[in-house]
Nucleic acid binder design. Structure first.
Lengths: 193, 193
DNA sequence: GTAATTTCTTGCCAAATGACAAGTTGTATT
DNA sequence: AATACAACTTGTCATTTGGCAAGAAATTAC
């Protein structure tokens, strides 16, 4: 088994004995998905949690005009999930779709619960993930309020250049809260500067 | 001591023996604030957590044009805090300001930690509060994306009519993500329907 | 290699929203 | 009661943004 990416990701966030990390990582099952597949579907239960080893995934919802609005873009390596829906075992609020071919590691809800019970470190890791996600959501919310689309674009370009090299701009535009037309205009202007 | 509001609030969210609730509630200290006072200041540490017994409080930030943008409106009874900043003991991201005279109950961070350690129920209560807040933030985010300002206005009017009877419309407008001018126009149109 | 599809840019126009100002109403203060 | 202040509405105008469509460029499929 080769779960080094997952192991180092876990250990990075919460240092613990190597054998413990391996014990947990080995319980994940590798899972491949081609491009444009739905990993999680709105209003369906999330019975598994996922670690994205390679590839790109986005979450999106539909607004009242039927337009897809991208709420998040996930760039490996990271955990991917509707965390609230997963931990509460309630229907998902959003759709999650692969944007490229993806290699994932998955673990069932039951197994997560068992491991939470058996390994305090893993439970603590789960708590950290929850707070991290909460924190990310708050930052995004504040950025949407505070910053202009152009500022959010520049920040994203700096922090996640790899996304711009792999994902269509129309999806990035939707994530930034604007249309692809507007993003195109912003790009034109920022190049001039 | 009269902490019945706090006790019933706690017990409602997480049923536990009455003497336990009382034991915890009695460790909060009553705290009054007049209108328009700052309870939590951006970039300052939050050394206490608050339960709002009566009154109204808002959280706000400044956007890049220097305008105050209301991020939340709290209507008693409820807990009020920058939860992430409090639990991580990091500088607050937002300002919290009383909109009316307020009666609060407060508890210091140290005492919260002690109680988390001593009373598993209280720790569980804290976890529930975290998830509840996370959940509320996600709902708000999705609503801001999905719904028009008018729909958000109507929803809020239905769910929190008491806010409209006590808080200036310009603050509500700012919370809805529009100007007071636009809100005024929306109100005019929705009355006609 | 060619065709088909998707992505990206750009122009034009319409719609929505904000800025500003004026005027009205309501509340608080003395 | 008179004054001052804050809240709310409304009009005008400017700016921003989106919708749509056309065309170029890039990618994918056959």
């Amino acid at each position: 088994m080769n779960k080094l990416s997952l192991q180092s990701y876990i250990n990075n966030l919460l240092p613990m004995p190597a054998n413990k990390t391996m014990l947990i990582a080995n319980q994940f099952k590798e899972y491949e998905l081609p491009k444009n597949e739905l990993l999680i579907k709105e209003s369906k239960l999330c019975k598994e949690t996922y670690f994205l080893e390679s590839g790109f995934i986005r979450s999106y919802i539909r607004d009242n005009n039927g337009n897809e609005v991208t709420t998040n873009i996930f760039s490996a390596p990271c955990f991917v999930n509707d965390f609230l829906a997963f931990f509460k075992q309630q229907p998902a609020n959003e759709n999650f779709q692969t944007l490229t071919q993806c290699v994932l590691q998955k673990m069932s809800y039951e197994l997560v619960q068992t491991n939470f019970h058996t390994h305090p470190e893993f439970r603590e890791f789960g708590r950290i993930m929850l707070v991290t996600n909460y924190s990310a959501l708050q930052s995004r919310m504040l950025a949407m309020i505070k910053d202009t689309a152009e500022e959010r674009y520049l920040k994203m370009l700096k922090q996640h250049p790899e996304i711009f090299q792999n994902i269509p701009l129309k999806i990035i535009a939707s994530y930034l809260g604007i249309t692809d037309t507007s993003l195109s205009r912003i790009r034109k202007e920022t190049i001039l500067k």
